[in-house]
């Protein structure tokens, strides 16, 4: 216990980095996922094939390989990247971690949204068209909000998976919760005390995320519940 109390500051900074990486890549992944999901539903092959290739590659390969490909693999193209002025970005593990996690979660989220878009009842789209909505307006007012609502339960799972995946960034030297734990273990040899402690922190974070989503779902399902007795 003394080990944990004595290094609370380091654990706290690790926790902050874990949460920060999760939130930033989640936001970037979400921004990416919506257009990819729409492209995936497009009819023209030039539109859906790239979107399909992207989601297929990122969902079919391990996150660890993707991380290494970005962080170590970029070194093979150092000269080209330097010429393009991008090397300052790719030599930073923080940037590579964010980029890879965002691309990874973007691919999963796009598939989840696609399911949501497909789940929008045809009748609602027909009703909107009958009201004179078309194209962008139809998507903005009817399809996307409904798809978001339908995708929410699956999306909460993806958020939990992403939170846990961020532990991999410790392998490319970032000091997230897992990274801090590994450094402290190398110094103190208190293996299971420290791992069990951070395991409990991850567990608490996971159930906090699930609780937040349950609250959001509760709010969004107000029209499905019975009115309170007057």
């Amino acid at each position: 216990m003394a080990v944990i109390v004595g290094h609370l500051g380091q654990f706290a900074s690790g926790l902050v980095l874990t949460v920060e990486v999760t939130l930033l890549s989640l936001a970037a992944g979400l921004l990416l996922a919506v257009p990819v999901a729409l492209l995936r539903e497009a009819r023209h092959p030039a539109l859906w094939i790239p979107a399909y290739g992207y989601t297929f590659y990122f969902r079919g390969t391990p996150l660890l390989v993707q991380l290494f490909l970005c962080y170590y693999g970029a070194g093979q193209f150092r000269d080209q990247l330097e010429a393009a002025g991008l090397w300052v970005w790719f030599r930073e593990p923080y940037f590579c971690a964010l980029l890879t996690l965002a691309l990874n979660t973007g691919a999963y989220t796009a598939e989840i949204f696609r399911g949501g878009i497909r789940g929008v009842p045809r009748g609602e789209i027909e009703a909107a068209r009958a009201c004179g909505m078309s194209g962008i307006l139809l998507y903005r007012r009817i399809v996307l909000p409904k798809a978001f609502r339908l995708a929410l339960p699956a999306y909460s799972n993806e958020v939990v998976f992403l939170l846990q995946s961020t532990s991999l960034v410790s392998i490319i030297t970032l000091m997230d919760l897992t990274g801090v734990a590994r450094v402290l273990i190398a110094r103190t040899f208190m293996v299971y005390e420290i791992f069990i402690f951070i395991g409990a922190l991850y567990l608490a974070l996971t159930y906090f995320v699930l609780w937040v989503f349950r609250c959001v779902e509760w709010r969004l399902s107000a029209h499905m519940r019975q009115a309170p007795e007057a």
Partner: peptide, 9 residues
């Protein structure tokens, strides 16, 4: 709990 943490544990 993340898989990585369990494997290391």
């Amino acid at each position: 709990v993340p898989e990585l943490v369990l494997i290391l544990l």
